[in-house]
């Protein structure tokens, strides 16, 4: 078994309104931030997982992300996977 460390990023699909992101963008403008044209809020989930190999780890993380961490109706997800030595 090897240990893998992954960070899964969950974001609202581009077609879905992100009111929290919009509100934060308004606040950023009030702070005087220049040139900000997009601000969207997502989630970052850090996990450690033991698996035989990278392929197996990816499979498990895909299942986890598709079925639990993200709701595919409104969200997209991506992952960064690292092997922990």
């Amino acid at each position: 078994m090897s240990k893998f460390r992954a960070r899964i990023l969950v974001s609202l699909r581009p077609s879905v309104l992100d009111p929290a992101g919009e509100a934060t963008k308004t606040a950023a403008n009030q702070l005087g931030i220049k040139g900000l044209s997009k601000l969207r809020i997502g989630k970052s989930i850090d996990i450690d997982i033991d698996a035989l190999n990278e392929e197996e780890a990816k499979k498990q993380i895909e299942l986890l992300s598709d079925r639990l961490l993200a709701n595919p109706v409104i969200e997209d997800w991506s992952m960064e996977l690292l092997q922990v030595v």
């Binding site: 609202l12 879905v16 309104l17 992100d18 009111p19 929290a20 509100a23 709701n71 109706v73 409104i74």
Partner: peptide, 16 residues
């Protein structure tokens, strides 16, 4: 909706 018995999803109210 999370179960998939009904379609769609319920998201944050647009006025927060």
């Amino acid at each position: 909706t999370e179960l998939g018995i009904l379609p769609g999803a319920l998201t944050r109210n647009n006025n927060l």
